[in-house]
Every structure is written in C-alpha cells, then in structure tokens.
Computed example of a mutant assay.
Amino acid sequence: MFYWLIELTNTFPSLSVFRGLLNVFRYITFRTGGAVVTGALFVFLFGPWIIDHLRLRQGKGQPIRTDGPQSHIISKKGTPTMGGLMILSGLVVSTVLWANPLNPYVWIVLAVTLGFGFVGFYDDYLKVTKQSHSGFAGRARLLIEAAIALVACYALVRLGRDPSSTGLAIPFFKDLVIKFGWLYVLFGAFVIVGAGNAVNLTDGLDGLAIVPVMIASASFGLIAYLAGNAVFSDYLQIHYVAGTGELAVLCGAVLGAGLGFLWFNAPPASIFMGDTGSLALGGMLGSIAIAVKHEIVLAVIGGLFVLEAVSVIVQVASFKLTGKRIFRMAPIHHHFEQLGWTEPQIVIRFWIISVMLALVGLSTLKLR
C-alpha cells in the first residue's frame, strides 16, 4: 500500500515537493525494514489481547501429550495455543502495508501461508475442543496441504515462463540444473508440504521453532532480494527470477512478527505457536524456496527442521521393522530432554545450530 504513495505526487501536483521523500517507498530494502518494524509493533501491541482472548476461549489450553516428557504435563499445562494467529495477523498486516500489491509472488506465498495456517488452525481447534492431542486426521490434512501446494507450484511455474522454472538448481555449481519438466510441480509440492510439517514437528519447546524460522526467513529474504535483482544475480551466477525481490518484504514481516511472538513465547511461554503457526510458516518457507529456485538451500538453512523430521521418520521405521527405538523419544529435541538437557539448553543450542546452517546455506550464493 505504501508502495503507491509516490503515485500521489503524480495525481496531486501540489505534493510534488515530497517526491524525493516518498521515493524511498520504491526501494525494497526500505520497505523490508518497515515491514520488520510494523510486524513487531503489531504483535507487541495486540499480542496481550489475543493471548487473553484465546485463554478465555480455550479454558484448559493446549492438551499435553501423556506419552511425552513428564515435566511438560506440569510446567506447560493450561497454556493457550493458536499463537500462530498473532504471527499471521502481524505478517498479513505488515505485508499488505509494505509490499507491492501488484506483485503476484507475494500473493501466491501469502495464499500458501494462510492456507496452511487454516489447516493448522482447524487441527488446533479440534485438539482444544476435544481436549485430545489427536486433531485433524493425518491423511486428510496431508491431502489438503498437497492440494494447496500443487496449485501454488503450478502458478509459480507459469509465472516463471523460463526453462529453469521447472528445473532444480544444484548449489556450488554454476550451470548444473536437473530438468524435471512439469513433474517439477509434484516435486515443488513435496518441498512445501515437507517444509510445513518439518517446522510443525520442531515446535515442541518454548521458543524452539520461532527463532530458526526467523533465521531462515532472514536468509531467504536476502536470497529473494538477490535473485530478484538482475545485476546481483548475474554477479553471483544464481538464477534470476524477476519479481521475487518483493518476497524480501514478506520475509521482513515474518521476522518482525516472529520477534513480537518470541516476547510472549520465551520460556516460560505465555502462549504456544500451535499448528496454526508452525504449518503456515513452514509452508511459507517452502513456497519462497520454490519461487527463488533455492530448494536444496532450504534443506541446508532449514537443516534443523530436516533433522527433526528425519528423527521421527527413523524412529517410526525402526520401531515398525525391528520393534526397537533409535532415540529415547522423538522428535529429537525430546531425546535430549530424556538425556538430561534442560529446556533452555536445548533451545539455545538448537538456535546456534540454525545460525551455523544459515551461514552454510548463504555461502552457496558465492561458492560456485
């Protein structure tokens, strides 16, 4: 919306004196900074009201799994969930205000984010109303997520209008691209659904998921800005995707809203993100990675999410095949709880890992 302020100087000649000042709204970097501040302020200001409203509506709060760490039954009982509504509201308001409303990439990624957020919201709603950790049927949930992801990937491929839009770029190589053709739509949908559920599995301790999401968002904000700039993408020899630079504004909105949410989610959490937030944010990261053609880099920068998801897959497969468990408890953050690590130790150490993985992922932009 603010992007159009410069047009006022053309419509109203008397405002031409402000043309130089209003021209800053054309710059992605300025609007990204504005999105960070707006997202954070929105959640800071309206967060307490949202928390009080959710606590009143939910009563007993999020049901705690009886087969999980026993300490959670005592320390986390009664904490409201659906905190993702705080993040999504701040994200949407900030993006609408600061992003270019004519950019289709922004709307596609927002559609995926809100679509996955709605699926997560329904799952949280069922858990809270039934006071059971069993929410939305897993197979039905995956089918809806897949449908959203398929439509989004098809739209992104059509937007690309370039042979590289259906190819998979390999990091550390200049021109190595694996061509999928239209099968890329299926691959892209897998990336989006996988990212959504990987972040969902990571959300198990206070502050554990939101900071790695913020780190990944900041990283992909930079990647989107570079990939959407013809000069920078040519210099770095990465695929130029016209229009994706605007996604940096959306990533800034996530960063700001995430900072606001962390204020309330820091141990001991006043509210949980819930599937409402984790599915939405994971789907957002997956769709941005597809848009900017850095799918493999997402697996690196989001390596913590991959580790959490793989730990669950390995645990389930091992138990079904051999009757034995690889980890004391899955996802893997619970394994470390069982080993005696305190919750702050796990969370902060996982944050450190996320920062290191982000640096490795960003290094792929130059090491080619």
Rank of each mutant, 00 (worst) to 15 (best):
Phe12Thr: 13
Phe42Cys: 08
Val106Ala: 09
Ile210Leu: 07
Val128Ala: 10
Ala257His: 04
Ala257Gly: 03
Ile223Gln: 10
Tyr154Gly: 14
Gly61Leu: 08
Lys60Met: 12
Cys251Met: 15
Tyr27Ile: 04
Val347Glu: 10
Ile73Gln: 15
His335Val: 04
Asn100Lys: 06
Met284Asp: 07
Thr11Val: 13
Asn265Val: 00
Arg55Gly: 12
Gln62Ile: 00
Thr322Arg: 12
Gly260Pro: 11
Pro63Lys: 09
Ala189Ser: 15
Ala309Met: 11
Leu279Tyr: 10
Phe30Ser: 10
Arg26Lys: 12
Trp107Phe: 13
Leu15Cys: 10
Pro267Leu: 08
Leu247Tyr: 10
Ser318Met: 09
Leu259His: 08
Leu307Gln: 03
Leu45Arg: 05
Leu114Trp: 09
Ser219Asn: 09
Trp98Tyr: 08
Ala189Met: 09
Ala218Asp: 04
Leu102Phe: 14
Leu126Glu: 13
Ala227Phe: 03
Val37Ser: 03
Val249Asn: 07
Glu308Tyr: 02
Ile288Gly: 13
Gly323Val: 04
Ser14Trp: 11
Val151Phe: 15
Gly361Lys: 05
Thr11Ser: 14
Met356Val: 14
Ala209Asn: 03
Gly194Pro: 11
Val310Gln: 03
Tyr27Val: 03
Ala309Cys: 00
Met356His: 00
Leu54Val: 02
Ile148Phe: 14
Arg19Met: 04
His72Tyr: 10
Arg325Ser: 01
Phe173Asn: 10
Thr9Met: 05
Ala189Asn: 07
Ser354Trp: 09
Ile348Ser: 12
Val106Tyr: 03
His239Ala: 13
Pro344Asn: 09
His53Ala: 14
Ser233Asn: 11
Asp123Gly: 04
Ser311Gly: 05
Ala330Ile: 04
Val193Asn: 03
Val297Glu: 14
Lys179Ser: 15
Val106Lys: 04
Phe121Ala: 05
Leu339Ser: 07
Val211Ala: 05
Gly90Ser: 06
Ala309Gly: 06
Ala317Ser: 14
Gly20Arg: 07
Glu145Leu: 15
Asp52Glu: 15
Lys127Thr: 01
Lys366Leu: 13
Met273Arg: 06
Gly33Thr: 02
Ala198His: 00
Ala111Gln: 01
Phe173Ala: 09
Ser71Ile: 09
Pro69Tyr: 12
Val157Lys: 02
Gln237Met: 13
Phe187Ser: 05
Ala269Met: 03
Asp234Phe: 00
Ala248Met: 07
Phe319Arg: 05
Val306Leu: 12
Ile192Pro: 06
Trp263Asn: 10
Ala257Cys: 06
Thr342Trp: 11
Leu201Cys: 01
Asn23Trp: 06
Ser75Phe: 04
Trp263Arg: 15
Val310Pro: 09
Asn103Tyr: 08
Gly47Cys: 07
Ile170Val: 15
Ala149Tyr: 12
Phe336Lys: 02
Leu159Ser: 06
Ser217Thr: 01
Leu205Arg: 01
Ala280Pro: 08
Gly167Pro: 06
Lys174Asn: 14
Ala149Pro: 14
Pro48Phe: 05
Ala309Arg: 00
Thr29Lys: 09
Ser134Arg: 02
Gly34Gln: 02
Gln345Asp: 01
Ser318Tyr: 11
Val193Ser: 04
Asp175His: 13
Asp123Trp: 10
Thr66Cys: 03
Gly340Trp: 00
Tyr122Arg: 13
Phe327Trp: 12
Val241Thr: 15
Asp206Thr: 01
Tyr235Gln: 05
Val96Thr: 06
Val106Gly: 05
Val37Tyr: 08
Leu367Cys: 00
Ser94Ile: 04
Phe272Leu: 02
Val177Asp: 01
Ile296Pro: 10
